[in-house]
């Protein structure tokens, strides 16, 4: 909290937002481990983290409901920062410069860059789909109410959406490690002025009133 009063730091996420993010992140971690355990036999040993294979099967859907609710709050809070702009299209076209750390060649970024926004919309697409397909295949409670053809489709879509989501989160986590100074934003809530000016100049100007 002392960082908030440090003039060289700018608040990026409030304590409530951080808590919301990390509940989502921890439930995601549990869900991806338990889900992958039942997806590929090579990862079946992940079931040991959940008290065994049957407990893994029992717990996974309940954790999923928690993640959906938690992500829902996160999405409600942040969706308006994630609307795509003309600059975002240019940013995406220059993705080769992005991965080479040549930020001087990129259009000005506001609170989120186009990559972050793409991740947001990927989560918006996959998490509700995972909830809906997850309910269809949830035994013993809900699956018996659905036609077997619907269940089969839901099983495939659930695996597919989870794959897209996990791939997206791997990129998300890597980006946080790659862009130094980012993790502090979500752990302590603040970023340095230099970080903000370098990576999110549009946002920096808005929150500092010029700078």
């Amino acid at each position: 909290m002392s960082n908030d009063r440090n003039p060289s730091r700018i608040e990026r996420y409030s304590p409530a937002e951080r808590l919301n993010h990390w509940i989502t992140a921890l439930t995601f971690l549990l869900l991806s481990c338990s889900g992958l355990a039942l997806f590929h036999p090579a990862l079946f040993w992940f079931t040991q983290f959940f008290g065994g294979p049957t407990w893994t099967r029992i717990l996974h859907p309940y954790i999923g409901v928690v993640m959906f609710a938690s992500f829902g709050a996160l999405a409600f809070k942040f969706w308006h920062h994630n609307l795509l702009t003309r600059n975002d299209i240019v940013w995406l076209r220059r993705i080769a410069d992005v991965v080479r750390n040549r930020e001087d060649r990129l259009p000005e970024v506001d609170r989120y860059n186009a990559g972050q926004k793409m991740l947001f919309w990927t989560m918006i697409a996959t998490i509700p789909a995972l909830l809906l397909t997850g309910i269809v295949i949830w035994r013993p409670w809900f699956a018996p109410y659905f036609d077997i053809g619907v269940i089969r489709l839901a099983l495939l879509l659930h695996a597919f959406c989870a794959f897209i989501m996990i791939a997206g989160i791997i990129v998300h986590v890597y980006a946080a490690l790659w862009i130094k100074g980012t993790i502090g934003a979500m752990v302590r809530g603040s970023v340095s002025r230099a970080w903000a000016r370098k990576h999110h100049p549009g946002w920096y100007r808005r929150v500092t009133g010029g700078g």
């Binding site: 060289s8 750390n101 930020e103 490690l177 340095s192």
Partner: peptide
């Protein structure tokens, strides 16, 4: 490629 760091000079610039 390596990490994308906010250099010390960039930190000083603002100060």
């Amino acid at each position: 490629v390596g990490p994308n760091e906010t250099g010390e000079d960039e930190e000083e610039e603002k100060a």
